[in-house]
Design a protein around this nucleic acid. Structure first.
Lengths: 216, 216
DNA sequence: TAGATTGTTAATCGATTAACAATC
DNA sequence: TAGATTGTTAATCGATTAACAATC
């Protein structure tokens, strides 16, 4: 008997999912019921085989030759995969301007992320609220994460503080860290770190630009 | 006669450069003059061959067996490569909270980026200043970019506005776009788009977390 | 039936890692 | 000299793209 082999969803495929969801929702609003991989590929400037493989990996039913895939089914499958429907709780450390931007951004709710507390060491911030989220003393990071069973930590402190904060989050039982500080964190093997390094992106941008300028 | 072949610096190597610079500066502050690739690899949790290749690709002189590379020379080489010393001018479109965070972040100056103007369509913002940067009517995007010879555009508007803004920037002669909106932009071939999509990163984060939770 | 589209295997590409000789 | 480290070639890995038969 052939066993059902769950298709592997690669990291890069996962990163494309939010784009698919967004595009599929637009089609859904136009009351379009089915869509083909080549059509989505064209709309998002992606390769059609890539889209087909991504859809095959997440779709609960097969695509139909000539017709394509069910729009609503794809949306449901992808949203379930990413947990858009049952939000995961997270804490944020560092109440600076980037934290403000993150806490003010309503989009995270639809992406399945609920920030339940913010921490800072600056006593001027402690006790205040940012868009409805309380700012708490950073001393309480480990304790609060453990008590509230929070498994996601967001780091928006300066580079010099990031490793300290990271250690506190890990001590509190956090399993996944979203790191906006421009350093590479040391963590135990079982902890996932997702780096969001603006300096890295900027490096790619300015190098490419420099090369282009040479032709002008 | 052998011709000198400029080593190719890959995109991923480029993204590691800011981490190297940061680490090397720390060593410089401790008055350490030379450093080996394995040492840097250990400090940054990277593979030692990878670091050696990255250093070989950017260093103006060869590393010395047993000793390693000159710290100050590596810093100079990398900073020149990324243009940290002669800042490139950029404009930012969308004066929301993310724009605030970007404009308030002093780090960009050291990364070689100088934001000379911000645009918005909301007349309540127009004429105000954010951390010393004037907010201008979005109607003037193309015109101002062309007159000021600005080649980098930063997009922080909502998804629904991003393509429109992108077209205006391209019309104004912008060659590189840093896109914070969660959509894939359509641009001519010669324009570079660097996407900074929080939803994509979050997708990776929550999927991995979900898998980990299954073992608890 | 003809043709658009799927699903899948093979080829290619880019990046990382392993292996090892050369050198100070 | 011995050993740490470099530089480089080969192997591996992950992801993308090309090719093509199967299907509605």
């Amino acid at each position: 008997m052939d066993e059902y082999i769950k298709p592997v969803i690669t990291t890069q495929a996962l990163r494309r999912m939010p784009y698919y969801i967004q595009q599929l929702r637009m089609l859904q609003n136009e009351n379009i019921e089915t869509v083909s991989a080549p059509k989505i590929a064209e709309l998002l400037n992606l390769n059609e085989v890539q889209v087909r493989k991504d859809f095959a990996a997440v779709s609960s039913s097969k695509g139909k030759p000539k017709a394509g895939f069910s729009v609503t089914e794809l949306i449901t499958n992808m949203e379930n995969l990413l947990g858009y429907n049952n939000a995961e709780e997270a804490v944020l450390v560092g109440a600076g301007s980037l934290a403000h931007a993150i806490l003010t951004y309503e989009g995270f709710k639809t992406y399945g992320l609920k920030i339940v507390a913010a921490f800072d060491i600056n006593s001027a911030y402690i006790g205040t609220e940012i868009n409805g989220t309380k700012v708490i003393s950073a001393e309480k990071i480990s304790d609060l994460c453990r008590r509230m069973k929070v498994y996601i930590g967001i780091i928006t402190v300066p580079a010099s503080q990031a490793q300290i904060v990271c250690d506190q989050l890990v001590a509190g039982g956090v399993l996944a860290i979203w790191n906006f500080a421009p350093i590479r964190l040391s963590v135990p093997d079982h902890i996932l770190v997702q780096n969001e390094n603006l300096a890295a992106s900027l490096a790619v941008l300015s190098k490419h630009l420099k090369e282009k300028m040479n032709y002008l």
